[in-house]
């Protein structure tokens, strides 16, 4: 464990908590893409099946349980409890265009052709594009609530910190996982446009609104 990975995990945890609290307190999921949240729940489910097979550390197990619990709670709020506030007309990204290619790629490019490893690879590839429905929805509505932009900032920051963690681990431990690194780079690049808007607008107190 190094400071970059720990900060990355805490940033990820912050994002997940911010979103869940925002929806719970405002009793509304307006502006939130339910499709992205379903994809994240799928990412955690397929990646953390090893909760049932191996124990790595209390920290590792605790965080995985929190991630899975919060992501399913968020999906539950969006599609069940607060369904009336879900903005389905703007959440129209075709997720099958993500899941099918990612599923195929996981079968073709992986470290080991075993069920757990293929599911882990699928989850790594899926996570790198899971935010697309959310970004697409913001481009369609042309704006995002400020709290939603903070959620996206911490979510994007987490994988960027993981990239530094992988540089650190390669240099100090010789650890190197090409699949996670390439997917992490793609994932972080997808946030660049948003990061620019976040820094130039939200941090200056303006509302994030895209040129309609």
């Amino acid at each position: 464990m190094n400071i970059f990975r720990l900060t990355g995990d805490l940033s990820h945890l912050a994002a997940i908590i911010i979103l869940l609290l925002k929806i719970w307190k405002s009793r509304s999921c307006a502006g939130i893409s339910g499709k992205s949240q379903v994809l994240f729940a799928l990412v955690f489910t397929t990646r953390y099946l090893d909760l049932l097979t191996s124990f790595i550390s209390l920290y590792n197990t605790t965080m995985k349980v929190i991630y899975i619990g919060c992501s399913y709670a968020t999906v539950y709020l969006i599609y069940m409890k607060l369904k009336a506030t879900y903005d389905g007309n703007h959440d129209t990204f075709r997720v099958e265009f993500l899941i099918v290619p990612v599923g195929g790629l996981a079968f073709l490019v992986n470290h080991d052709f075993s069920p757990l490893e293929i599911l882990w690879t699928f989850s790594i590839y899926l996570e790198s594009v899971a935010i697309l429905p959310q970004l697409f929805m913001i481009s369609k509505t042309g704006e995002a609530e400020t709290i939603t932009t903070h959620y996206l900032f911490f979510l994007g920051l987490y994988r960027a910190l993981y990239l530094i963690n992988w540089i650190w681990r390669f240099y100090f431990e010789g650890f190197f996982d090409m699949i996670a690194i390439v997917a992490g780079v793609v994932q972080t690049i997808l946030y660049c446009d948003f990061f620019y808007l976040y820094v130039t607008k939200v941090l200056k107190g303006k509302k994030l609104s895209l040129p309609a």
Partner: peptide, 10 residues
């Protein structure tokens, strides 16, 4: 050499 330790990352 590049080793693939067990999946210890989240």
């Amino acid at each position: 050499e590049t080793i693939k330790t067990d999946k210890d990352e989240l």
